[in-house]
Design a protein around this nucleic acid. Structure first.
Length: 466
RNA sequence: UCCCCUGUAGCUCAGCUGGCAGAGCAAGUGGCUGUUAACCACUGGGUCCGGUGUUCGAACCACCGCGGGGGAGCCA
């Protein structure tokens, strides 16, 4: 099969009257006595291509009937000549010779109109919302960023590892988990007999993964530089604009790497992705800048040029304590950084992304490397203006005795982690990594404000339609 | 899970102290113009989220339920 040029390609061509075929969906139709103007979009880019049907075509009765039924949302095939446009507004246009109405979209029933719709309304028609400028632009940026993530790591010698979606370890500590079972819950519930997980599919309790990190650490200890990029599930009852029950996470892990290497990688990673978005998604970013988040492009350009502010948790707390700002939650050493604190640090103190390091061990996960001071761990969070944490990572505790001691302190059963502890028993190395929430990155880059609008079909509490 | 806001035409909303259901956009029809958020005129369009109650009378007040949004917590 030979693929026809996309509208994106047609729009960049030199128009010399060559014959072209346009296939896509009608965005608007404007009629005059002399001509009908159709704007057709095929999703290849934000812009539509203008197709002009002159009165000559209307003498053909079947064409004329098609024109009558052409409305916003209808699919069409147009064969014509690509010519320079005599009017302002577009460089080239298609002078239509043949029009085929492929699929109608009756305007009295089709929910999308030739007007702006609210994001809330569009969320209710997730299967159709991608036909709007905003959601198509998000989809294109999402695609480019997914590809750029692989490019970034592949260029640096990282291997892409597929960690499992189903896990039987229920204590990773990263949040509530969805249970996976093949048991007949309805029958069990009616019978009143206690559940015997021996009879379940895996012979024990199983869950959807909340993180690929522990698994990818195993490959890190053989391939040195690795990363995961896959779906992640959290059953937390979170109802916010920055949480999903199903989201995509990127988790690189580097052997022989310390916290500073980790921070350098995270910083370079963000800057790389933003630079690519600015360069390869310029039209979509310009749209977001104009319609969604004024000033977006400028703030993204600044991210690429400016180095991230780095401060320890202790310094961050001091900044908060010394400020005159009034916080709902009074900051003190040992507290978790609240949303308002993160906002203050990024927007008021740094005026850009902030890397906060060396958190109290009590508020971080068991596997993080314990610092010499006995109080903190070698953790790092990257906070960004507008919504806070985008990356969470650390150097890992690679010393067996210290890791076991920490697990005991936290009352974690060691048995399920034997394979993880083996990594420290045999050829252990210092190593570091982090997790980046893909949708949060997309919020940051597109300027969208609700995470449910940067994933095609959002899953959240009481929301799993489509 | 908690707090606040909200639900009226296809969409976005107004609707005063409880007294005949409204606007803009969209749509349909006609007109006009190489149009481009097209323009002008006319027309159609309602389970006022659901239930119960108060009242002579409820879109409006009260209670219960459901949906949506924002914020907080948890986190990526």
């Amino acid at each position: 099969m030979t693929l026809l040029p996309t509208i994106k390609q047609l729009l960049s061509m030199e128009a010399v009257g060559q014959s072209v075929t346009v296939r896509g969906w009608v965005r608007t139709k404007r009629e005059t006595k002399q001509a009908v103007f159709l704007e057709v979009n095929d999703g290849s880019c934000l812009s539509n291509i203008q197709c002009v049907l002159d009165s000559f075509l209307r003498q053909n009765q079947s064409t004329n009937e098609s024109i009558l039924r052409l409305s916003t949302g209808a699919s069409v095939e147009i064969i014509g000549e690509l010519v320079p446009s005599p009017a302002k507004g577009q460089r080239v246009e298609v002078k239509c010779q043949q029009l085929k109405l492929i699929g109608e979209a009756p305007p009295e029933r089709y929910p999308l109109q030739k007007k702006a719709h609210s994001l809330e309304f569009l969320r209710e028609i997730a299967h159709l919302r991608v036909r709007t400028n905003t959601f198509a632009a998000v989809a294109r940026v999402r695609n480019r960023m997914a590809f750029a993530i692989h490019q970034f790591f592949q260029e640096r010698g990282f291997y892409y590892i597929h960690t499992p979606i189903i896990t039987t370890s229920d204590a990773e500590g990263a949040g509530a988990m969805f249970q996976v079972t093949s048991l007949d819950l309805e029958a069990l519930s009616k019978s009143g007999t206690p559940i015997d997980y021996e009879k379940d599919f895996f012979g024990k309790k199983a869950f959807l993964t909340v993180s690929g990190q522990l698994n990818v650490e195993t490959y890190c200890q053989a391939l040195s530089r690795v990363y995961t990029f896959g779906p992640t599930f959290r059953a937390e009852n979170s109802n916010t604009t920055r949480h999903l029950a199903e989201f995509w996470m990127i988790e690189p892990e580097m052997a022989f790497a310390h916290l500073d290497d980790n921070i350098a990688l995270a910083t370079e990673f963000i800057q790389y992705l933003v630079a690519i978005a600015l360069q390869d998604c310029a039209e979509d970013i310009a749209f977001f800048d104009q319609r969604i988040q004024p000033g977006l492009r400028e703030s993204l350009e600044r991210i690429v040029k400016t180095s991230f502010t780095r401060m320890s948790y202790t310094e961050a707390i001091r900044e908060l304590e010394d400020s005159n700002a009034v916080f709902e939650f009074k900051p003190y050493w040992g507290c978790d950084l609240q949303s308002e604190h993160e906002k203050f640090l990024t927007e008021k103190v740094a005026g850009g992304p902030v890397v906060v390091t060396d958190y109290p061990k009590e508020i971080k996960a068991f596997y993080m490397k314990q610092n010499e001071d006995g109080k903190t761990v070698a953790a790092m969070d990257v906070l960004v203006p507008r919504f806070g944490e985008i990356i969470g990572g650390s150097e890992r505790e690679w010393r067996l005795d210290l890791l076991e001691k920490r697990m005991e302190e936290l009352g974690l059963a060691k048995e399920p982690y034997q394979w993880y502890l083996d990594l420290r028993r045999y050829g252990s190395t210092p190593h570091s990594g982090f997790g980046l929430g893909f949708e949060r990155l997309l919020l940051y880059i597109t300027g969208m404000t609700n995470i449910r609008d940067v994933i095609p079909f959002p899953r959240a509490p009481r929301q799993a339609d489509f």
